[in-house]
Design a protein around this nucleic acid. Sequence first.
DNA 1: CGGAATCCAGATGGATACTG
DNA 2: CAGTATCCATCTGGATTCCG
Lengths: 111, 111
Amino acid sequence: MTNKTYTALTAASGVESVLRLLEGRWKLVILFHLFGGQVQRYSDLEKLIPDISQKMLAQQLRQLEADGIVIRTDYKQVPPKVDYRLTPWGQALCPALDALLTWAENRNSLI
Amino acid sequence: MTNKTYTALTAASGVESVLRLLEGRWKLVILFHLFGGQVQRYSDLEKLIPDISQKMLAQQLRQLEADGIVIRTDYKQVPPKVDYRLTPWGQALCPALDALLTWAENRNSLI
DNA sequence: CGGAATCCAGATGGATACTG
DNA sequence: CAGTATCCATCTGGATTCCG
C-alpha cells in the first residue's frame, strides 16, 4: 500500500480473479437457479436452461465446483443421480451480485 | 416476479449485462487507475499499464466511454492532449467491486 | 441419467506498422 | 501525443457423436 499504482494493480487483479470465477456464458444463470438453497439435478438444470449444451453445463458445473462455489453430490445409483447445491461461500455471493445490480439500476440517475 | 425460474433468469441476465461492461482483459486495471477522482492522460495510462497495447487501451477506453463509465476530454491542442476520468456512475462502481473483493476474502472461512 | 470426446466457427486479444 | 489499420494466434463456446 505504499503507492497508488501498486494499490491499483493489486485491487484490480483481485477483482479480476473474482470475475474470472463468474465468467463464462452460463455460470450466472446456473448460480441463480441454485441461490436460496435450491438443489438441482443435472437434468433439472438442463430443463431450466433449455439453450445450454450438455458440454457447457457439465464444464461450467465442474469449474464452479473446483472453485468452491457449488457442491456436486453423486448418489452412485443406477440409473445415475447427481445433484448440485451452493457451498456457504457460494450463497454468500448473492449480496455482492445484488450490489452490482443496484449499481446498474442507478445508471440513469448518475451518469 | 411470478415464479422462481423467471426471476432467476431475469436477475441472471441483469448481472450478466453488468459483467459484460467490465469484461475485457484490461478494463478493471484502467478503472482502478481512475478511481478516487484520478484524471489520467492517454500517455499516463500507457505508462501505468506497461503491458497493454495501444490498440487495447484505445478500444477499452472507447467501450468504457460508450457505456457511460468514463469521460473522455479532448483539449483539441497540437500536440494532442486527451484525458480520462470516471463519470459519477463510474465512481459509484467502487463499493460494488469492494463487495466482490470482500466475498473473495471470505473464501477460506466459508467454503 | 449424466456425462466425455471430438471437431469447428466466431470472438477476443496481441504484434506491428502507419498517421493527423 | 493519441491514436488507426491490418494481420494473426488463441480462446470460447456450440454441434455432434458416443459411453458406463
